[in-house]
Design a protein around this nucleic acid. Structure first.
Lengths: 281, 281
DNA sequence: TCGCGCCGGCGCG
DNA sequence: TCGCGCCGGCGCG
C-alpha cells in the first residue's frame, strides 16, 4: 500500500477516506474531460489511482456519483455559457440542505407548502422524494440572476464549488414557467435503483399539475423530467417510461410518462449532444 | 482462509459463491429462528461463518435479502397454518419469472393487459415496478387452493422450496377481492433505496383503482401495501407515507398513502405480531 | 450526530 | 446470457 501522503486522502481513525473534490482535481491536474476520453474510463483511472491507498468499494461508489455529476454539470454550464438562448441545468444539494420548492417565488412556494399541509392533515400523508440531481432553469431567470455566464475552462476546486453552489442564487427567483424540468443522473443503473427515478418524476409532475390547477393556468409548458447514465439498455428505457400514475386514473387525461427521456452520455461529446437537445430552444 | 469444502460454497472460476438456501439450512442445522434470537443477529452469525471463506460483501448483501425474506415467510406461513381465518402472505419471484397479474382470474388479468396496451399505445408508456416481495392472499382462495396448510417446523431445503414456490398454485385463481395486498421487505433501508417501495405501492394502487372503475365495483376493500424492515426510523416512516399520486390530482378523491404501514420486525416475536396484525381478520 | 443520496458486487433461473 | 432485485459502505454538511 502506498504510504506517502496525498492531499485527497484523509485518515480518519485508521480508515482512508476520499476527499472527492480534491481527488478529481488533483489527480487530473484540473484537466477538463477531453473529447477522446470516456467518463467510465476516467472513473476507472481515478479508481486505479486511489484504490491502492486502502480505500474501499463503498467509498469509490460514493465518489463515482459526484465525479460523474460534476463532469456533466460542467458541460451543462458551458452549453449555457456558449449559447445565449440556452436554459441552464444546475446541480442541487440534498433535500435536507435545500427544499426544492424554495426556488419558486414565495407565492408558488406557498401553494406547495399548503398542498403538503393539507395532504398531511388528511392522514399523516407526506410528499417525499429525493431531490433531483439537476434542475433546469429557464434562460429568463438565468439572465436576471447570472447575467454573465463565463465558460469553465479548468476542472478546479473553484469551478466545482461554482457548479455545486450556484443553485443558491436562484432561491425565490423562479416563476412557475421558469423551472423547466429536472434531470436524474446515475453513473450506473440496476433494475431496482433505476425505479427511484420514475418515483421522483411522478411526484414532481403531480405537484406541478396541482399548482397548475390552483393557479388556473390553462396551457402550461409542462415540466420535463430527464435521466442520464453512462450506459443504458432496453429494460432501463422501458422502466423509466413508466406512467406517472396521476395521469391514468381518469379517462379524460392523457397518460404521461414519469420520465420523458433517458439518455446515455459517456463522453463530453455525448453529454454536449444531450444538453444541446434539452437546453437549447 | 478455510479450505475444507462446505456444501454451501460453490467455486466458480476462482470466485467463492454462496449457495443461499443451502447456507442457511446447513449452517443452522435446519433450526427455526428461536424466540430469543434477532434476525440481524442471525444474519451476522451467518456472515461470520461464511466471510472467512473468501466471499465478498456483495454476495453477503445479496444473501441477506433472501435469508431475511425466508425467515419472515416462515412466520407468515405458520400464522396462516395456526389460524384458520388468517390470510396468507406468500413470497413472489421476480417479474421476469412471473407476471403478477396472472394471479387474478383471466377476466381481471385481461383488464390489466388491456390497460397496459392502451397506455402503451398513447406514447410508449409502460407500467414497470419490481414485483413486491410478498402477496397477501385472502383466506377464501387459500382454502380452495391449499385446503390443508401444515405448519413448518424446520427450516429445511424442502421448507424453503415450499415458501418460494407456493405462489404458482395460485395462478389464475384469485378474484378481485382475494388479493388483499402486498408487502415489501428490506433487511436494511437507505434514504434512496427506500423510495423503491412507494413507487411499487403507488403503481399497484393505481392499477387497482383502474380495475375498480372498469368493473364498476362500488365499495371495494382497497388494496393494502405494507413494508417490513429489521430497523426503522422516523425518516423512513415519513418517506413511506408518501402519497400515491393518483389520489391527489382531483379535489374529489381523498389522498391516500402509497404504503399503508411500515413495520419493524427483527425477531420471530416481532414478526408474528406484524403478521397477526395484517393477516388476521 | 446522523440524514442524504451515492453505486457496485452479487445468486439465481 | 443477462435481467432481476438484493443491500452495505460510503463523503459530506
Amino acid at each position: 500500500m502506498e504510504m506517502q501522503n496525498v492531499p485527497y486522502i484523509r485518515m480518519n481513525g485508521g480508515r482512508a477516506e476520499v476527499i472527492k473534490r480534491d481527488a478529481i482535481t488533483h489527480i487530473r491536474g484540473q484537466a477538463l474531460p477531453a473529447d477522446h476520453e470516456t467518463y467510465t474510463g476516467i472513473l476507472e483511472s481515478l479508481d486505479n489511482t486511489i484504490r491502492p491507498r486502502g480505500v474501499g468499494q463503498g467509498a469509490l461508489s460514493n465518489a463515482h456519483g459526484d465525479w460523474y455529476e460534476w463532469m456533466l454539470a460542467l458541460e451543462a454550464w458551458n452549453t449555457a455559457a456558449n449559447n445565449p438562448d440556452a436554459d441552464l441545468a444546475l446541480l442541487l444539494p440534498n433535500k435536507r440542505r435545500f427544499d426544492l420548492s424554495r426556488l419558486y417565488s414565495p407565492r408558488i412556494c406557498g401553494i406547495i407548502t399548503d398542498l403538503r399541509n393539507k395532504v398531511l392533515q388528511t392522514g399523516n400523508i407526506s410528499f417525499v422524494s429525493s431531490n433531483p440531481d439537476f434542475v433546469i432553469l429557464g434562460r429568463s431567470v438565468v439572465d436576471r440572476v447570472i447575467p454573465h455566464l463565463n465558460p469553465i475552462n479548468m476542472l478546479s476546486n473553484d469551478a466545482i464549488d461554482t457548479l455545486d453552489n450556484s443553485y443558491l442564487e436562484f432561491a425565490d427567483q423562479c416563476s412557475f414557467e421558469e423551472i423547466k424540468g429536472y434531470i436524474s443522473v446515475k453513473s450506473s443503473l440496476r433494475p431496482d435503483r433505476r425505479l427511484q427515478i420514475p418515483h421522483e418524476g411522478s411526484l414532481m409532475k403531480a405537484v406541478y399539475v396541482h399548482i397548475q390547477t390552483r393557479e388556473w393556468i390553462i396551457n402550461p409548458n409542462g415540466i420535463k423530467y430527464y435521466a442520464i447514465s453512462t450506459a443504458i439498455n432496453d429494460s432501463d428505457i422501458e422502466a423509466l417510461n413508466t406512467v406517472a400514475t396521476h395521469s391514468i386514473t381518469t379517462v379524460s387525461s392523457v397518460p404521461q410518462a414519469a420520465v420523458d427521456q433517458l439518455f446515455a452520455a459517456n463522453s463530453p461529446v455525448e453529454a454536449r449532444a444531450v444538453f444541446e437537445q434539452i437546453l437549447l430552444p
